[in-house]
Computed example of a mutant assay.
Amino acid sequence: MRQNLTFSLDNKTEKSITKRLRSEGCIFAEEETQVLISQAGSIEDLMKMVEIRASGVPLEYVLGFTKFCGLRIDVERGVFIPRKRTEFLVQQAEALTQICDIVVDLCCGSGAVGAAIATNLSKAVLHSVDIDPVAVRCSSRNITNIGGHVYQGDLYNALPHKLRGRVNIIVANAPYVPTDAINLLPQEARLYEPKVALDGGKDGLDLQRKVVEEAPRWLASGGHILVETSKIQAAQTFEIFAKAGLTTKIARNEELDATVVIGKN
């Protein structure tokens, strides 16, 4: 018998939940069953969550949160779900961030990247931006409680003008999936996550170009910009950085299948 805070569950019911999730294509059905049980307040809540998950809704939306860099990050339907690989972007940014640095997180989505940096480096001053009002609402819940600021708008246009030339770190997990490749994404991303957070244009690099080209005007002398990209797009992203006059390098983590291009102003 498994005991939760408010209800108990017999092994037969638990196994039936796992079987139900597996039959609907949940690869990690056993693990997801345990997570759902741990988060449900009653047997009625649990069965409702199971049915929603079995319908194909991403687990993170069912739960209302995900784990990222050890943090509990609120997510909601219509907001991009942060990926494990993006923790490498955070690691690379943290290595370059000093106490009291100004950090800007562009295309922030749930705000996970900025929240992780600001939490681990508590003196950093965080400014996060997204064009999507749903993302801004969600990121506000993850950022304002740690002293960060969230703005709705198109990239740098949303930032206070006083930050121009004073930003120490810019991070961006801008969408980099080529438009024609959207249909090749896993069903959970393709059907449930916002297209604006996935579609990077014809070659996947449209947003990266906008982010990088304007970065030197916002970065302080010696400041850095870090952008997540894919392994196959890394050389093109590198060229975008170099063309903007930035001293550029590529960082790669094979275990996470994560690639970050880093530029210094």
Rank of each mutant, 00 (worst) to 15 (best):
E239T: 14
K84I: 13
T248L: 12
V150E: 04
A172V: 08
Q152N: 06
D257L: 03
G25C: 08
E214Y: 08
L191V: 05
N145S: 12
V136R: 03
R85A: 12
I131E: 06
Y151C: 01
S128E: 08
C69D: 02
G41M: 05
D132G: 11
A40I: 07
Y192F: 15
A251H: 05
S140H: 01
A116W: 03
S122H: 10
A235E: 15
K264R: 14
Q233P: 00
V167C: 06
K210P: 01
C138Y: 00
Q236R: 14
K123E: 15
L198N: 08
Y176T: 00
H224T: 07
I131S: 12
Q233G: 07
D74N: 14
A158K: 08
D74T: 13
K162S: 14
L106Q: 08
A93K: 01
Y61V: 06
T144M: 13
G25P: 04
V150H: 07
G109Q: 02
R209H: 11
F88G: 09
F68R: 00
V212Q: 08
V103H: 06
S128H: 01
P58R: 11
P82K: 11
D203E: 09
E254W: 09
I146T: 00
V104M: 04
I169K: 04
L205Q: 03
S110T: 09
C26R: 12
D101A: 12
L9C: 08
L163G: 11
R217M: 10
V125E: 14
F241E: 00
L46N: 03
L96A: 09
E228G: 06
E87I: 04
V260Y: 04
K264A: 10
D257Q: 14
V134H: 04
V35D: 00
F7M: 03
F80P: 02
I240M: 08
A40V: 09
G78I: 05
R2W: 11
T237H: 08
I169C: 00
E24C: 15
S38E: 07
D199N: 14
E44C: 02
L121R: 15
T18N: 11
H127P: 07
I73G: 06
D10L: 09
E193Y: 02
A124N: 08
A220L: 13
R164I: 13
N265W: 04
K249T: 15
G223R: 05
S8Q: 12
I27H: 09
T259C: 14
T13R: 14
S140C: 12
I146S: 03
E44D: 15
V57W: 02
Q92I: 13
F7D: 00
L159A: 06
L21D: 03
G165S: 06
L246K: 10
E228S: 09
G204H: 06
D74Q: 14
Q92T: 14
I117D: 01
G201V: 03
V35L: 15
R77A: 11
T237W: 09
T66W: 02
N145F: 03
P58M: 10
E76F: 01
K210Q: 13
V150L: 11
C69H: 06
V103E: 02
H161L: 14
I262N: 02
R85N: 12
V129Y: 09
S42Y: 09
Q152Y: 04
R209G: 11
S38W: 10
D45I: 01
A215P: 04
I73E: 05
L155E: 00
A181L: 11
I250R: 12
A118D: 04
I143K: 06
I52R: 13
A174Q: 05
A112L: 07
S128L: 02
D132N: 15
